[in-house]
Computed example of a mutant assay.
Amino acid sequence: MSEPDRISCTVTDGVADVRLNRPDKLNALDPEMFRALVDTGLRLSEDSRVRAVVLSGEGRAFCAGLDFEALARFSEGSNTEDLVAERAIGPAKARGQQAAWVWAQLPVPVIAALHGVSYGGGLQIALGADIRLIAPDARMSVMEIKWGIVPDMTGTQLLPELVGRDLAKELTFTGRVVEGEEAAKTGLATRVEQNPRAAAMALAEEIAGKNPEAVREAKRLLDLAGRVDLDAGFAAEQDSIRALFGTPNQVEAVTANLEKRDPEFTDPA
């Protein structure tokens, strides 16, 4: 299978439908998958048509984590060039980190639709999404401890933010498997859906119908929360609201609401 086949990606009406496409291996991560994830995320970040992204997996799982054969090669110290990124993406310098972080740094909302398993690196990729919709019987695990290693794809930094430091430690120290309902209750997932991909697409379409500039600003502001002090966060809010007021899309939002019709927004330049 060629590298581009590792990921399928289509954009329709502002929604990017991104699917991990290695179903025979439960979408396990190999060097080609790492590269395809990063390349796809970077390409979408530069596409002004994109207003929301749905990230899912083909076949029976979202992502089973690192490919076992790849794990053996990495343990032997060979093919390490496959893990070296050509350039940094923000704070993410290793390719594995970038495969997860590239979704977090997208300027538009990313919704992960999780079914089957999301183990190890697969879980860390899901953590890069803004919203995670999970099937009732889906399973998630910080699986790295099983292989005698630690999460190294941004998970140690993003997981405590979602579930709290103590639960993040328990899950990381034990590799315990968490299923749909518990995942939603603890914050590991956003909510349970019988059909996560269909629900994610519906949510993405709803978001794509809002002012795209306001959605981008909202994501940027919310991602600042807890990462900057309140002075900086409050100032950023005021900068954003001043920048949005009076713009064509903001005026269209008000006009469409008053006229009780669907708005017609233009994509950011």
Rank of each mutant, 00 (worst) to 15 (best):
S240M: 04
F265H: 01
W101L: 05
P196W: 00
N21C: 11
L159V: 10
E58G: 01
A200V: 06
D24A: 15
A52L: 04
P268M: 09
P31Y: 01
R227F: 04
A189R: 02
N21V: 00
D267E: 14
E264F: 10
V178H: 03
G246W: 12
L224N: 02
R176T: 14
W101F: 11
P136N: 09
Q124N: 07
D82K: 05
T186P: 08
A61T: 12
P151S: 15
P196R: 03
V108W: 03
E182D: 09
A204Y: 01
A99E: 09
R261Y: 03
I131M: 11
L123P: 05
A126P: 03
L29N: 14
R60V: 13
L159F: 06
G175E: 02
D166C: 05
I145K: 13
V53A: 10
N79S: 15
P212K: 06
V102E: 03
M143C: 14
V38R: 07
L258Q: 13
D231I: 09
A135H: 05
E205F: 12
D267N: 15
A126F: 15
K25G: 14
N21A: 11
L66M: 06
L55M: 07
N257I: 07
D229P: 07
D223S: 13
K260L: 05
L55C: 06
A198E: 11
A52N: 06
I134H: 05
T247K: 06
L71F: 13
I111W: 09
D166L: 14
E144I: 14
F74E: 13
P91S: 04
G121T: 08
E193G: 07
P136D: 14
P160L: 08
Q105A: 12
F62P: 10
G59W: 13
L123D: 03
P109R: 05
M1Y: 02
Q238I: 13
V84S: 04
Q97R: 11
R216M: 11
S78Y: 01
T10G: 08
P136F: 15
A92Y: 03
A256Y: 00
I134K: 01
L224T: 06
L221A: 07
V110N: 01
G121C: 10
K169M: 08
